[in-house]
């Protein structure tokens, strides 16, 4: 693995499978009475959030604490950091404090890449979502969820997603989740299809390693997993689609549409869901919907990523066992 995790495209198949397998080990720890591992004791991880996202921050924080890291939360309020220089200033402050890893969320695409490559800081950088670019831990937790559901928790170990048909539906244009997932799922051997109105697909999407369709109904029967992306209501003000109602009629997943999916197929959502827009309550609350599992899996994946980046050379869990036996 590389020293930073900036983009899902940077991961090889073997890197990705290693992370998924390590996350399964981490998940087993969560099933124990004592959920903590001493792996990152004495290491400092900063959650540097320039954009509000309580869900993602809490998930990282839980992962860091379960690995016994010292955690610093730095949440910069939107407007005061609109000027770029504060990213550099903040980075140098953190560098002076001797942090080992920076988990960064930023509204500007490329900010984590800049942080990792500009010589401002030595720490490992984990991208927790940048602009409309990438959100690699989200893609990893999605792949983890798909593998568990479709391949199996134990039978999945060491395996990728070869031949699994995964459909992403919604605002692809503005979605870092979509970009990360296309990269990672392709690397893992899945067949990816994007479904969206043409206005919500980027120019240049034809070069991505996936299929593109404007028609959800014809894609559903050929999907092993359908991943719904959040569609912000404000997009209709910029003429990306006419009305909320028309969007949900053409691209929303309701019970009737879900019935067109194969029996084994699952419905995924990275959250937060806009019920009534891209997903109906009936679908969101059905047991085919993995949204809650995805949240749980997110902690395991982030534990695995931090563990692997901060370089535990010994297996994380056996190490834990000896500690527990003390």
């Amino acid at each position: 693995m590389q020293r930073h995790l900036i983009s899902a495209a940077d991961l090889t198949r073997d890197d990705a499978v290693l992370i998924l397998d390590t996350a399964e080990e981490m998940a087993r720890v969560a099933d124990r009475p004592i959920k903590k591992l001493p792996t990152l004791r004495g290491r400092t991880v900063v959650n540097l959030f320039f954009e509000d996202s309580t869900r993602t921050r809490i998930s990282f924080e839980a992962a860091e604490k379960r690995l016994s890291a010292d955690v610093i939360n730095f949440t910069a309020k939107g407007s005061s950091v609109s000027k770029g220089e504060s990213l550099k200033d903040t980075a140098q402050t953190l560098e002076a404090m001797g942090v080992d890893a920076v988990v960064i969320r930023h509204g500007a695409s490329g900010a984590p890449y800049r942080l990792a490559t500009s010589g401002w800081i030595d720490a490992a950088v984990v991208n927790a979502g940048d602009g409309t670019h990438q959100h690699p831990t989200q893609a990893l937790l999605d792949a983890f969820t798909v593998r568990r559901r479709l391949v199996g928790r134990d039978t999945g170990l060491g395996k990728d997603l070869d031949g699994r048909r995964i459909t992403l539906v919604g605002d692809i244009l503005h979605s870092r989740v979509a970009r990360s997932n296309v990269d990672l799922l392709h690397t893992l051997g899945a067949e990816v299809t994007l479904v969206a109105p043409p206005t919500l697909l980027p120019v240049g999407v034809e070069t991505w390693p996936c299929e593109v369709s404007y028609d959800l109904d014809s894609t559903l029967p050929k999907s092993d997993a359908v991943m719904l992306l959040r569609v912000q209501r404000e997009r209709m003000n910029a003429a990306f689609f006419p009305t909320e109602r028309e969007y949900s009629r053409r691209y929303g997943l309701d019970g009737d549409r879900m019935a067109k999916m194969p029996d084994h197929a699952v419905v995924m959502h990275p959250g937060p869901m806009v019920r009534g827009m891209e997903i109906t309550a009936e679908v969101a609350d059905s047991d085919r919907c993995t949204a809650v599992e995805q949240v749980t899996n997110g902690v395991s994946i982030r534990m695995a990523v931090l563990y692997l980046l901060l370089g535990g050379n010994e297996p994380a869990v056996s190490h834990a066992r000896t500690t527990e036996e003390k």
Partner: peptide, 18 residues
């Protein structure tokens, strides 16, 4: 708009300048 709109902007997630 942040950069030329095309293959690279699609990947980088930067606003396209057609």
């Amino acid at each position: 708009a942040q950069m030329n709109e095309g293959v690279v902007s699609a990947e980088l997630g930067l606003g396209g300048w057609p």
